[in-house]
Design a protein around this nucleic acid. Sequence first.
DNA 1: TTGAATATGTTATAACATAACATTATACAC
DNA 2: GTGTATAATGTTATGTTATAACATATTCAA
Lengths: 170, 170
Amino acid sequence: MSQAAKRKTADAPAFPKPGHNHAHCTKEALRKAEAICAARKTKLTDIRRQVLEAVWRSHVPVGAYDILAQFNAGGGRVAPMAVYRALEFLMDNGLVHRIASLNAYIGCAHMGADHHAAQFLICRSCGTTAELESAPLNRALTQAVAARGFTIDSQIVEIIGVCPHCRDAS
Amino acid sequence: MSQAAKRKTADAPAFPKPGHNHAHCTKEALRKAEAICAARKTKLTDIRRQVLEAVWRSHVPVGAYDILAQFNAGGGRVAPMAVYRALEFLMDNGLVHRIASLNAYIGCAHMGADHHAAQFLICRSCGTTAELESAPLNRALTQAVAARGFTIDSQIVEIIGVCPHCRDAS
DNA sequence: TTGAATATGTTATAACATAACATTATACAC
DNA sequence: GTGTATAATGTTATGTTATAACATATTCAA
Ligand SMILES: [Zn+2]
Ligand SMILES: [Zn+2]
Ligand SMILES: [Zn+2]
Ligand SMILES: [Zn+2]
């Protein structure tokens, strides 16, 4: 394998496939979340874990009220605040991202990498959303912003399009 | 002037200054909007023009209900739908952009350039928001996305930070 | 001039998010 | 263990953003 190919692969992990073993994604996410909270001495309480699990049900961003509906499906009585507070905790701890263009939330695919500067690919066909993580893109962005004399705090990068699996299926 | 400096200048137009002649910005925007609508054979009706003017009151993105409040300040009775419909028209015609991270709207700084793929710098201090328009950034983004097998439809790029004027003032 | 398309008016409601304050749980010093 | 401070959750209400559905008016061309 060439160096170029290696770099490309490193920059471009696979887009989540329709039939993949998602139980594994979820299990890993929960495991890492426990580890991160332990390391940070923050508490992954019941409701926070449940919200994290709800967010990891799939690779499609989920709305706060969708999570709420899941909780209350069996006659529960959870209030919106509880969900929003859990989401805030999870975002503060780098376990979940908010997708601004969808008003929805998704599990962080790079827990522990300490990036509050994620970039997303959002399939408008299946909804699957993946983190991009491209070093060249980050460099270009940093440079373009600096050239304008602007000091960057945070960023929202959400690319809407069609994922490879939906493209191949059509 | 060197080629490099020219390129940099071309890539990095000035961030809107606090004391600039904003009446000129507004006037130009309205003039271009008329021209674009004429060319596209779409109608810049009264309410649409008024919403466009409201959006151009400053370089700070404005919320739909803020626009509504302006209209109704003198005892008017405009409904939210009217504002949202006008905004939809203006966005469809490339005259206004939505800032997803703020749920707010801003006049397009490059009318006629046919870019539904704008990128924004948002000052968290003064609120001033400018379009970025960086060719290297666009190239990096296109390439990073293509490397993932993703077909891009549209993008949301919003960089939050501190503008040069606020930085210098602090 | 009449019919189709476009634009606006009107009412209601959906969808997303936070404020404010009460209560309960946890941890830690004493 | 007891008190006490902090963190977490519960509860109620409300704020904010956006759209659905249907009625009416305007425009424009055949
Ligand atoms: Zn998965
Ligand atoms: Zn897809
Ligand atoms: Zn101006
Ligand atoms: Zn500023």
